[in-house]
Design a protein around this nucleic acid. Structure first.
Length: 303
DNA sequence: CCAGCAGCCTGTGCGC
DNA sequence: TGCGCACAGGCTGCTG
C-alpha cells in the first residue's frame, strides 16, 4: 500500500542505487504497463529521482524521464550483477526475475573504468554498488502500476502529475490545509485521501491520523472546528514522519529497493485492527466502508 | 463542476 | 480438499 512514506523510501533507495548509472538495456516482459518509447531511455544516464505525491520521476541525461506509479503492489528492486540482492535480511523475492517481473533495466556504471583502483575501505562504503553493473526490476503482482517515458519538461502535462494537490512536507501548510478542509463537505477521511486536494495520503495513514486526532472519519471537512483542523494537520505530519522513519509499512507486498522491509505495520494505531482493542480506551475497533474502502476507527474515542 | 462507483488485476484467506 | 467469494486499495473514466 505504498503511500507517501513508502514511495519516498523507494525514491531514496533508487537515489542510492541507480543514480549515476546508465541504462544499457530494457527488457519488457509485459507491455501493457509501459508506455512511451524504450529507445528514448537506452544509453541515457540516470541523473535524479523525484517524487510527487505517490508518483516517481526518474530523470535521465537526454531530456527524457521515466515516470512511474507503483499503485498497490509495484516494486522496484535493484540487484547487483550477480543478481543477488543487497539487503542482508532479504525475506522477499530471491528468485528475480519471476512471473511478476514486468520490466528489467540493465544498468552499467560509468565508474567501471576505475575498477582497478583499490578501495580505501572495501565493503564499508554504503554507496559501493554504484560502482557495479546491476539490474533494476519492476515487479507488480496486480499490474495496476505503470511506467511511462516522457520528456522531462512534459512530466506535468500528464494528468496524474498535473492534478496533484499540495505536498504534506512542503506546500501543504497549515493555513492551506485549513482552507482545503473548510471548503469541502466530503467525509474527512475521503478528503485526506483525495490526491487532488492533498497528495501522498492513502488508507493507512488517513486512518491512523484520524485516530490520533480523535476525529470520526465520517465527519464532514467543513464541520471540523479550528482546533480539530490543527490537531489533524499535526497528526497527518506525525504519522507520515513515523512511517518514513520506519521505512514504510510492509504489511503486504511493499519492499524497499534493496529488498528490505519497512516496519510501520508493527506500529499501526488503528489500521487493520477491527475487532481488536483500542490502544487508548480498550473498547473494540470497528470497520466501516467509505468510498468502497475500509475505514477503521474507535467509536468511543473518535467523535 | 462534483460525487459515486465500476474496472483494472492477482493472491490470500475464509466459509461451506 | 477445493470451490466461490470477499477483500486488499490508487487511480481512471464513466455516469448522473
Amino acid at each position: 500500500m505504498p503511500e507517501l512514506p513508502e514511495v519516498e523510501t523507494i525514491r531514496r533507495g533508487l537515489e542510492r542505487h541507480i543514480v549515476g548509472k546508465a541504462i544499457v538495456g530494457v527488457e519488457l516482459r509485459f507491455e501493457k504497463i509501459f508506455s512511451g518509447k524504450v529507445e528514448d531511455v537506452i544509453g541515457a544516464k540516470i541523473m535524479s529521482i523525484r517524487r510527487f505525491g505517490k508518483g516517481l520521476v526518474i530523470d535521465l541525461s537526454n531530456g527524457f524521464s521515466i515516470t512511474a506509479h507503483v499503485k498497490m503492489t509495484g516494486q522496484f528492486v535493484y540487484f547487483g550483477e550477480d543478481r543477488k540482492n543487497f539487503h542482508p535480511n532479504l525475506s522477499l523475492p530471491t528468485d528475480l526475475p519471476n512471473k511478476h517481473t514486468h520490466v528489467i533495466f540493465t544498468l552499467n556504471s560509468p565508474a567501471e573504468r576505475h575498477a582497478g583502483k583499490p578501495e580505501a575501505h572495501p565493503g564499508s562504503d554504503p554507496g559501493q554498488d554504484r560502482l557495479t553493473k546491476g539490474f533494476l526490476f519492476y515487479n507488480d503482482i496486480r499490474k495496476f502500476g505503470w511506467l511511462k517515458v516522457v520528456k522531462t519538461d512534459e512530466v506535468f502535462r500528464q494528468p496524474f502529475f498535473k492534478g496533484l494537490g499540495p505536498e504534506p512536507f512542503s506546500t501543504l501548510t497549515l493555513p492551506l490545509f485549513k482552507k482545503i478542509v473548510l471548503k469541502s463537505s466530503l467525509p474527512i477521511k475521503i478528503l485526506l485521501m483525495d490526491q487532488r486536494k492533498m497528495s501522498g495520503i492513502g488508507n493507512i495513514y488517513a486512518n491512523d491520523a484520524l485516530y490520533a486526532s480523535r476525529i470520526d472519519p465520517r465527519r464532514k471537512g467543513n464541520e471540523l472546528t479550528k482546533l480539530e483542523q490543527k490537531v489533524l494537520y499535526t497528526a497527518v505530519l506525525e504519522v507520515l514522519t513515523k512511517g518514513l522513519e520506519l521505512g514504510g509499512a510492509s504489511e503486504n507486498t511493499y519492499i524497499q529497493v534493496d529488498g528490505g522491509k519497512g516496519s510501520y505495520q508493527d506500529h499501526f494505531l488503528v489500521y487493520g485492527k477491527n475487532g481488536k482493542k483500542c490502544l487508548r480506551c480498550g473498547n473494540l475497533i470497528e470497520r466501516i466502508k467509505q468510498g468502497g474502502r475500509s475505514t477503521f476507527y474507535c467509536p468511543t474515542c473518535q467523535s
